[in-house]
Design a protein around this nucleic acid. Structure first.
Lengths: 144, 144
DNA sequence: ACAAATTACTTCGTGCCACGAACAATCACA
DNA sequence: TGTGATTGTTCGTGGCACGAAGTAATTTGT
């Protein structure tokens, strides 16, 4: 009896597993956890308040507090209070954080592109276009 | 100035983010954590020893112990000692575990297939084929 | 046959991550 | 000037993952 062909759903799950592993492996190389890397990527477009940031990352605010605490202790980000609204806090990359996120981004991009390296240009282009279509309305967690 | 087109790497990251969220959302609906769901899916092909299981999931053995402990306490799996090798432990789904993983699998498949629902058949087929090609040598974490 | 190496799994300590409930400070506005 | 919403934090709980060290059973080498 022939082996069943892998369906779309299974393929998506395996791809996710694969990318997730890459993500955490590259993160480890930059001394970043997955959550930290995601946060830094989100911040690389510019500083954000805690509420915006938790929205982008899909986390509760209470979860974010500790994440920012640890990143701040490692010197990757700083909190700055907004003079306009003294409740609000802006989280911003430090130079070290910027450097880390660049290293992370470059290496990850390299490794991800390598996944498609064997594709003929037409197939790669088509695949990328389909990807874009699927994720059209997913918020950016990754600097583009 | 025109907005840059999303590259393949960014698309992969966003897709992963999206699928990961679906995964944990569906898991929550079945009262399963992501790690638990992954373990149960891996076991749905048949019982495995701790070593095999930690290999499939990409976890250290010491991490797996607790994962199995918690799943066992929830009645999802059982440990059975192998009479041939009294060091070895086989982890096996209980009926409740089997039921949970089926519900999870069905719902997740439904939600993932929905991502491609708008694709014309040709594009969907091509996309799936490309997926298969990328993940060809990734171990199954998901029953097929 | 028996000591040494190996294998299978667990325990322990550490740290990170995420949630929800409860709270303090500030702002908006009526 | 209050009242209600918003911003962010604290606290308690639980889960996840790692590595080092430990226990028990099997295998290997002589």
């Amino acid at each position: 009896m022939m082996k069943e062909t892998l369906g779309a759903a299974s393929g998506l799950v395996r791809l996710t597993f694969l990318v997730q592993n890459l993500y955490s492996e590259v993160g480890r190389g930059c001394d970043l956890t997955v959550a930290q890397a995601q946060m830094l990527c989100t911040l690389s477009d510019g500083s954000l308040g805690m509420a915006e940031l938790s929205g982008s990352l899909g986390l509760e605010r209470s979860s974010l507090t500790g994440l920012v605490d640890r990143a701040e202790q490692r010197g990757l980000v700083v909190r700055e209070t907004d003079p306009r609204d003294r409740r609000a806090v802006n989280v911003e990359l430090t130079p070290a954080g910027t450097e880390a996120v660049h290293r992370f981004h470059d290496e990850l991009t390299r490794r991800l592109d390598a996944l498609l390296a064997d594709f003929p240009p037409t197939e790669r282009e088509r695949f990328t276009r389909s990807l874009r279509r699927i994720v059209a309305d997913v918020p950016a967690v990754f600097a583009d």
